[in-house]
């Protein structure tokens, strides 16, 4: 009973958050609604006993990505939308259809495996030991190459961002030095 209630509450919160995030014209309100969605999703992960994913969801999405979006918004000059720029939602039907299709394609295998939420039996038995430990071992042993490549990619992106941001200023400094 408890899990089901919790599931529906979290699901409602997440969906509402997502809807508000899409519909709100005020960008900051939208971002905070998005954060509500992230936190709701973290709750859902927690419900599925995937603690670490839940933590990462909060830490990375609600914490870091949220702040990043907020900073980006602060750099724009207009926070609240103007009605003059309102985009009329033509083709919303096709949009909805495509999103539904994508949604179904992604979810189809999962839906087949778990028929009801009342009986959320995973395919494999839950690992009793710490999920974090399991995750760590998996990341370091079989997926080490993937991790390293990702790390390299992220470092490259970071360095690129720094050079892009510093490009103008560095030349300026040089000019000043001359």
């Amino acid at each position: 009973m408890n899990e089901v209630t919790a599931f529906w509450m979290l699901a409602a919160i997440s969906v509402l958050g997502a809807l508000i995030a899409v519909r709100k014209r005020n960008l900051v309100h939208g971002v905070f609604a998005l954060l509500v969605f992230f936190v709701g999703l973290a709750g859902l992960f927690l419900l599925l006993l995937a603690e670490f994913i839940a933590v990462v969801q909060i830490l990375v999405y609600a914490g870091a990505v949220g702040i990043l979006i907020l900073f980006a918004i602060m750099l724009t000059d207009r926070v609240t939308g103007r009605d003059a720029f309102r985009v009329t939602s033509r083709g919303s039907f096709w949009g909805a259809l495509i999103s539904l299709a994508v949604f179904l394609v992604i979810l189809l295998p999962t839906i087949q495996d778990i028929p009801t939420i009342e009986n959320p039996t995973p395919k494999e038995t839950i690992v009793e030991t710490s999920t974090v430990k399991q995750l760590g071992i998996h990341l370091i042993k079989p997926y080490i190459i993937t991790i390293e490549i990702l790390a390299l990619l992220l470092t490259a992106a970071l360095v690129g961002a720094v050079t892009a941001a510093q490009g103008g200023r560095a030349s300026e400094n040089e000019e000043n030095n001359k």
Binding site: E51, F52, V55, V56, I58, L59, A62, G63, S130, T131
Partner: peptide, 13 residues
């Protein structure tokens, strides 16, 4: 299990 990391995630909010 992840109390410590949960701590940081939530203080981040």
């Amino acid at each position: 299990d992840g109390a410590v990391i949960f701590f940081f995630a939530i203080t981040g909010l």
